[in-house]
Amino acid sequence: MTDALHELLREPRIWRATSAPVTTAATATGFAELDARLPGGGWPQAALTEVIHAQQGIGELQLLMPALARLSRASRWIALIAPPHIPYAPALAACGIDLSRILLVRPQRHVDTLWAVEQALRAGTCAAVICWPGQADASALRRLQLAAETGDCAGFLFRSETDAAQPSPATLRVRLRRDTEGVSQLDLIKCRGNVGPQSLQLKLDTPRVQALPVSWPPHGGRGRERMAETAPARPAIVRPLYPKPRSEQARVPQLQLPLDGERQLDRMH
């Protein structure tokens, strides 16, 4: 009997909460308090993450924005599959996302959604695939998890509160809530390397993107996460919708040229 049990526990697919955390590649979330709780210090790369939220408009997208802004500046793509509303381009750009790296997929049927998600995850073209899959059973999610591993792609699934009770093979499951005071609370329902559910409070509305280095040296690859800490923080250049009148630009003293063009731009804005 005990032999059979040991046999079972040796199975690599079984993960025990007491075992040492698996070191996984991760992308920093942009929220220091959340990074500290997650194994690898961020959203797991090459795995599925489920974001469960009851209502819309509680900052569920904002939660991902710093990470997506960073990923969009790297060489790979970000796919949005079957979003429930229009992902609003000016707001995404304001979060620092490079829109030319966004692939918007709007399948007509539910079966096509799951198929498209699997293809996008598996292709290896996308750094992140964000999807709203609706109903999905455990075997479908298992397929998606394997596809994410194959394609080295971070898969984010937005799901409703009713799906929280359903077991899921996702590596990370978080639930986002917001109380009437506007304080966002994030519960880590399932997180490898963490024992038991945990909660933390996040300030989602504070735009953290500004402090993040979103532009990378052309050579990417390994050590990108480490570089996030050491690279000098350069704010994202956000062009305002209403540029200042030309007369004000003309007032920049001509004699101080040549200046570093970028720095000049920063000062002007």
């Binding site: 819309q56 408009g57 997208l61 904002q62 924005m65 429930p84 509303h85 229009i86 992902p87 609003y88 381009a89 000016p90 707001a91 995404l92 750009a93 304001a94 979060c95 490079d98 829109l99 030319s100 956000v238 062009r239 305002p240 919708l241």
Partner: peptide
């Protein structure tokens, strides 16, 4: 790309 702050994501 024109970024507009104070706009909703949805």
């Amino acid at each position: 790309q024109t970024a507009s702050p104070h706009r909703p994501l949805w």
